[in-house]
């Protein structure tokens, strides 16, 4: 825990807001007409996953929350709960799907991910720059929508459906940016 000011804000940082840890998803400087400076943030509650906007006075002090990352292996799913295992201690953690968000559709058993820990409980997942998954269903003969640059939708081994270029075939391993759900490349 350290006291910082809005000048120290960085995307991805964790701060205490209304007595709960939140992650700064985005921030913008705003100046109301003929007014002093403010910082508008998009904050994600680590507890509920709820995203809200809040505008701080520029220079206002806030408490930075220490959140550590631990490498954990995804094991299996039980309804809405995802079971991970700490690679170092072998301790198992039960993680609510809300904390993982949209990324659940890319979770494959035995893959290792960076999980965010606060007060010894999992509060979120650090999205990797890319995930590599196998295409399990692709319509070989798809003409695609040429007006938008020749793409089609395929299904990955985790069930996720993504938009890819026409040349992608069943069995290909492709890389996806989980932040934007966009296709990046085909792995050799």
């Amino acid at each position: 825990m350290a006291t910082i000011t809005t000048a120290d804000f960085r995307k991805g940082m964790f701060i205490e807001f209304k007595n709960e840890p939140h992650q700064i998803l985005d921030f913008q400087h705003v100046n109301p007409g003929k007014g002093s400076a403010f910082v508008r943030t998009k904050l994600k509650s680590l507890k509920s996953g709820r995203v809200q906007e809040f505008t701080f006075k520029s220079g206002e002090s806030v408490v930075e929350v220490s959140v550590e990352t631990r490498e954990m292996q995804y094991l299996y799913r039980e309804g809405d709960v995802f079971i991970f295992m700490d690679n170092r201690t072998y301790e198992q953690y039960h993680v609510q799907s809300g904390l993982i968000g949209d990324f659940v559709k890319y979770l494959r058993a035995n893959d290792t991910h960076q999980l965010l820990i606060h007060n010894d409980s999992v509060v979120g997942i650090r999205l990797p720059k890319k995930v590599r998954l196998t295409v399990t269903e692709a319509d070989a003969g798809a003409k695609g929508n040429t007006a938008t640059g020749a793409t089609k939708v395929v299904t990955l081994e985790t069930g996720a459906r993504v938009t890819v270029p026409l040349f992608i075939r069943e069995g290909d391993i492709i890389a996806i940016d989980p932040e934007t759900n966009s296709y990046l490349e085909r792995s050799a």
Binding site: P32, G35, S36, R40, E53, F54, T55, K57
Partner: peptide, 16 residues
């Protein structure tokens, strides 16, 4: 905080 800062913070958060 000055009156102006409080006024504008409420304005930016709840009104604008």
């Amino acid at each position: 905080a000055t009156w102006e800062q409080i006024y504008n913070q409420i304005f930016l958060n709840e009104i604008e």
